[in-house]
Amino acid sequence: PVYLSVKADNSMFIGNDPVTDETMITALNALTEGKKDTTIFFRADKTVDYETLMKVMDTLHQAGYLKIGLVG
């Protein structure tokens, strides 16, 4: 499974590897070998604001990742 996490300080990680807004999709493409039907499990600290969550989800959708599971 692929886990994308947003921490309380808005830092992002794919698994244990830090990513930025600019590198997130490139890292996901490498990890999933470009398979856009891969489910991305998205988790965020409860203090992360809604705007940040939606920005990340919008970026995922624009890149073609449509299977996003929200996890606690």
Rank of each mutant, 00 (worst) to 15 (best):
P1A: 11
P1F: 13
P1T: 11
P1C: 13
V2C: 04
V2F: 04
V2E: 01
V2P: 03
V2D: 01
V2A: 03
Y3P: 01
Y3I: 13
Y3W: 12
Y3R: 04
Y3T: 08
Y3G: 02
L4W: 02
L4S: 00
L4E: 00
L4V: 12
L4A: 02
L4K: 00
L4G: 01
S5K: 07
S5V: 15
S5M: 12
V6I: 15
V6C: 03
V6T: 02
V6D: 00
V6E: 00
V6M: 13
V6Q: 02
K7N: 12
K7P: 02
K7V: 06
K7A: 09
A8P: 06
A8L: 06
A8D: 08
A8I: 05
A8N: 07
A8C: 09
A8M: 07
A8Q: 07
D9Q: 06
D9S: 07
D9P: 10
D9E: 06
D9L: 05
N10L: 14
N10E: 06
N10C: 09
N10M: 13
N10A: 09
N10W: 06
S11N: 08
S11W: 05
S11C: 10
S11K: 12
S11P: 01
M12S: 01
M12E: 01
M12W: 06
M12C: 04
M12V: 09
M12H: 02
F13R: 05
F13W: 15
F13I: 04
F13Y: 13
F13L: 07
F13A: 04
I14M: 05
I14K: 01
I14N: 01
I14T: 01
G15I: 03
G15H: 04
G15T: 02
G15F: 07
N16D: 12
N16E: 12
D17M: 15
D17C: 13
D17H: 13
P18H: 08
P18A: 10
P18W: 06
V19M: 03
V19T: 05
V19Q: 03
V19D: 01
T20D: 09
T20F: 05
T20G: 04
T20M: 03
D21F: 15
D21N: 14
D21G: 12
D21Y: 15
D21P: 15
D21S: 14
D21L: 15
E22I: 09
E22P: 02
E22N: 07
E22D: 11
T23V: 04
T23D: 10
T23L: 05
T23E: 08
T23F: 05
T23C: 07
T23N: 12
T23I: 04
M24V: 08
M24S: 01
M24K: 00
M24L: 15
I25D: 01
I25Q: 02
I25H: 02
I25W: 03
T26C: 08
T26Q: 13
T26W: 09
A27I: 14
A27T: 14
A27S: 09
A27N: 06
A27M: 15
L28Q: 00
L28V: 04
L28P: 00
L28H: 00
N29H: 10
N29D: 13
N29G: 05
A30I: 13
A30L: 12
A30C: 08
L31V: 11
L31M: 08
L31G: 02
L31P: 00
T32F: 06
T32A: 03
T32M: 06
T32S: 04
T32R: 02
E33S: 12
E33F: 12
E33G: 15
E33D: 13
E33H: 14
G34I: 03
G34D: 05
G34F: 07
G34R: 05
K35H: 10
K36S: 05
K36G: 04
K36E: 04
K36H: 07
K36P: 05
K36Y: 08
K36Q: 06
D37E: 09
D37V: 04
D37S: 08
D37N: 11
T38V: 14
T38S: 06
T39E: 11
T39D: 06
T39C: 15
I40H: 00
I40L: 04
I40V: 06
I40Y: 00
I40A: 00
I40K: 00
I40W: 01
F41L: 13
F41V: 11
F41Y: 13
F41T: 04
F41N: 05
F41H: 09
F41G: 02
F42I: 15
F42D: 00
F42Q: 00
F42E: 00
F42V: 15
R43G: 05
R43N: 10
R43E: 08
A44H: 14
A44S: 08
A44I: 13
A44C: 12
A44W: 15
A44Q: 04
D45C: 07
D45M: 03
D45W: 06
K46S: 12
K46F: 09
K46V: 10
T47P: 05
T47D: 15
T47V: 08
T47W: 11
T47Q: 13
T47F: 12
V48R: 02
V48W: 03
V48S: 04
V48I: 09
D49K: 14
D49L: 12
D49W: 05
Y50D: 08
Y50E: 10
Y50P: 12
Y50L: 12
Y50I: 13
Y50R: 12
E51P: 07
E51S: 13
E51Q: 13
T52V: 14
T52A: 08
L53W: 08
L53S: 03
L53E: 02
L53G: 01
L53K: 06
M54W: 10
M54V: 11
M54I: 11
M54R: 14
M54K: 15
M54T: 10
K55I: 06
K55R: 13
K55F: 07
K55G: 05
V56C: 04
V56D: 00
V56M: 08
V56Q: 02
V56A: 04
V56E: 00
M57S: 03
M57G: 02
M57R: 07
M57L: 13
M57I: 14
M57F: 12
M57V: 10
D58Q: 13
D58R: 13
D58C: 11
D58G: 11
T59L: 15
T59K: 14
T59N: 11
T59E: 06
T59F: 09
T59P: 01
L60Q: 00
L60T: 01
L60H: 00
L60C: 01
H61G: 06
H61V: 10
Q62M: 12
Q62Y: 07
Q62N: 12
Q62C: 07
Q62E: 11
Q62P: 00
A63R: 02
A63E: 07
A63C: 03
A63I: 03
A63V: 03
A63S: 06
G64V: 01
G64K: 02
G64D: 02
G64S: 02
G64F: 02
G64H: 02
G64L: 02
Y65G: 00
Y65I: 01
Y65V: 01
Y65N: 00
L66H: 14
L66K: 10
L66Y: 15
K67V: 12
K67W: 09
K67L: 09
K67D: 09
K67N: 14
K67A: 08
I68N: 02
I68K: 02
I68A: 04
I68H: 03
I68S: 03
I68F: 05
G69T: 15
G69M: 15
G69Y: 15
G69L: 15
G69K: 15
G69C: 15
L70W: 14
L70G: 07
L70F: 14
L70V: 10
L70T: 10
L70K: 04
V71A: 08
V71P: 08
V71K: 06
V71H: 08
V71D: 09
G72S: 12
G72T: 13
G72R: 10
G72M: 12
G72Y: 07
G72C: 13
G72H: 11
